[in-house]
Amino acid sequence: LVLCLGDLFIPDRANFKKLLTPGKIGQILCLGNLTSPSVYTFLRNLAPDLQLVKGDFDISLSTPAPPNPNAAYAAPTDQVPVPTALSKVVTHGGLRIGFTHGHTIVPPGDPDSLLIAARQMDVDVLCWGGTCKFEAYEMEGKFFVNPGSATGAVSWSPDAELDSEGEAVSTPSFVLMDVS
């Protein structure tokens, strides 16, 4: 299983965290904006292979997370890296899966621009983020996936969903991918 998530911004979402337990997920694709060392440590303990790309609001993750005696996992001992790659490609079976934060896609989230990026990366599947909104669709034989925000961070986009009081809302989401 491959876990794909992004736009975290804040540390965690309890309802999701209890679903994500070590030993089930083989690889994590994190689409940037990983702004908390504690989340980095959580993800590092969740799967043996954590792949990061750079977001547009990454802050220095070089400060180690404070020890938490109540943590479900070991206290963080890893040196937290700052991702520098804007995009990466992983291969599962015959599928090439590309992933990027999405802030380099202009206009942001534009299907034609995403298709161009997928062709440039020579991938079958392109995962992107940056909009905090889940999307999945097929176009020109390629598959496009935006996992949304795993913590329910609110989109800055002008077409963001609004509640009855006009406040922006976001449905927390992530995706698991199983390739066979």
Binding site: L95, D124, V125, A136, L176, D178, V179, S180
Partner: peptide, 30 residues
């Protein structure tokens, strides 16, 4: 061809404001 099965996990609120995890499945065949 290779098949990718996407499991989408979303945290949705019901009418009482209680959050539940909804799972949807989407498939893609190369």
């Amino acid at each position: 061809g290779d098949v990718l099965v996407l499991y989408v996990y979303q945290l949705r609120k019901d009418q009482n404001g209680v959050e539940n995890v909804a799972v949807e499945k989407v498939s893609y065949r190369k």
